[in-house]
Nucleic acid binder design. Sequence first.
DNA 1: GATTATAATATCGAAAATCGATATCGAAAA
DNA 2: TTTTCGATATCGATTTTCGATATTATAATC
Lengths: 103, 103
Amino acid sequence: MSYSIIHEFLLGFIKIHILYHADKEPVFGQAFKQELKRHGYDISYGTLYPIFHTLERQGYLHSKKENIKGKIRKYYTITTKGKRVLQQSRIKAKELFDELFEK
Amino acid sequence: MSYSIIHEFLLGFIKIHILYHADKEPVFGQAFKQELKRHGYDISYGTLYPIFHTLERQGYLHSKKENIKGKIRKYYTITTKGKRVLQQSRIKAKELFDELFEK
DNA sequence: GATTATAATATCGAAAATCGATATCGAAAA
DNA sequence: TTTTCGATATCGATTTTCGATATTATAATC
């Protein structure tokens, strides 16, 4: 079976969405997933965590482990390089969306 | 190597984009690809044609072969079922985009 | 009427992305 | 020192995407 059209759409801009959020405040995997879920969208941990790792490896995010009530969280915040990429990407994405679809 | 953030975004809504166009006028693979190219985006035939096939198999598009100056084109137009799906998808996609990203 | 040219579609094996399930981690509590 | 638990990490299987190559069908050329 294949993924739904909307799920594909969500996956397509998940990186932009992560950068967008990590620009506002530190984010971590579990909460990020749950926030999406609240909106009615589901993304697997097997997809999500590797995306965080990739964005960090590419230097767009940087992480810091924190001990919250005895549990370890890995908070990600955007880097300067990440901000540049986000800036470009969000402009392009908006353009593309309007241009090719919404008019 | 991985695909670029914008390319991923494009791929994410390629089906919606195809349905959207096929709702306005008949579309065929070659021209569709070239139109994207004019906008600066590239998608492989190995990706594009199977997507058309899938959308047809799912009953969202229906095709008709035509002889244009001795060359065969397969024109796709949207079906009633496709219109329903497009309607739902575009609303959801817009919502999702605004909600999770643009505000 | 056989051969060549060509616009367009179709397909294939390899690479990448995604999933869902399971494993691991690390500190606190028991 | 064992158990608990929120959270991250990873694994094999499935699905998607790519770029290259093959195929199709007609027109033009000889």
